[in-house]
């Protein structure tokens, strides 16, 4: 269903007050009826009192009932002011369902950077190509806050299609992309990152490689050795800090070649001091 058609159906039902059941979310086992979602909370969500509305959004987000989720979807469809939209978006994604993507994509293009940052952040968690497309679009946003949110979300959500634009942002020295890429990195990507020396600001590259080293799930150690050596080539003082952090965070036993390499490099760099 297209955005427009979904909108008409959703809007018409939402405006006349009928339940949309748009979530497609099955009723939770043992869950109470929809009537059990406090009516006053739903009412508060649509009130002009933004503080109360934002609180209601948080409450509905925390509520596992399908009715609570539907109420958030309906409210988002009818348009929420930014102060309410952000908690509503966050709350919606606490209990993700496929129809959320259309609603969140609508807010991913909102004029308010906080709103679209929130939407993009949540979209990364949906296994939907269109959701990931919105994350990638966020990486091209002229507002740094939105790009950072998109990069962080892409890393957290393992959004592979975001790698290429994030590499471009890395070259521009954007740390959020460095961290996001580190989260996305497999051995191939880590080697590609290591090859960026001279093409990327040193400090930013250190962030990317240092963050990879800190990942407990990253390996094998031979690849970490390559990363340690790549960091060792970086003259920026932050390189030594990154290696020191890695040494401190890694147990001495069992012996790891990557840690030993890191120690040798740090000793050499700090030698004479």
């Amino acid at each position: 269903m297209t955005h427009a058609r979904w909108l008409w159906v959703g809007l018409a039902l939402a405006i006349v007050g009928a339940p949309t059941h748009a979530t497609g979310q099955p009723a939770k086992k043992g869950a109470a009826k929809k009537a059990e979602v406090p009516r006053e909370v739903i009412t508060a969500l649509g009130s002009a009192d933004l503080e109360a509305a934002a609180k209601a959004a948080e409450q509905l987000g925390a509520n596992p009932l399908a009715g609570a989720h539907d109420a958030l979807l309906d409210a988002l469809a009818l348009g929420l002011p930014p102060a309410v939209a952000v908690p509503a978006i966050t709350g919606l994604a606490l209990h993700p369902a496929p129809p959320d993507v259309l609603a969140l994509r609508r807010y991913a293009g909102h004029a308010n950077p906080s709103v679209r940052s929130a939407a993009i952040t949540e979209l990364a968690g949906y296994p939907d190509p269109t959701a990931h497309g919105a994350v990638v679009a966020g990486l091209r946003d002229p507002v740094g806050m939105v790009r950072n949110a998109a990069a962080t979300a892409a890393g957290r959500g393992r959004v592979k299609v975001a790698i290429e634009p994030m590499m471009q942002l890395l070259a521009k020295g954007e740390e959020a992309s460095a961290r996001g890429l580190a989260q996305l990195a497999d051995p191939d990507l880590s080697r590609k990152l290591a090859d960026q020396l001279g093409k990327v600001p040193d400090a930013t590259l250190v962030v990317a490689l240092g963050t990879i080293l800190k990942r407990a799930d990253f390996g094998p150690d031979a690849v970490k050795v390559e990363i340690v050596r790549a960091i060792g080539k970086i003259q920026d003082p932050s390189a030594v800090n990154a290696l020191t952090d890695y040494i401190d965070a890694t147990p001495k036993m069992p012996v790891r070649t990557s840690r030993q390499e890191a120690m040798l490099i740090v000793e050499a760099r700090l030698g004479g001091k």
Partner: peptide, 17 residues
């Protein structure tokens, strides 16, 4: 019309737009 209606709803309560 659907797109315009969606746009109106999205921003009708927005402080700026």
């Amino acid at each position: 019309r659907a797109a315009l209606a969606s746009h109106l709803l999205l921003y009708h309560a927005d402080e700026d737009r």
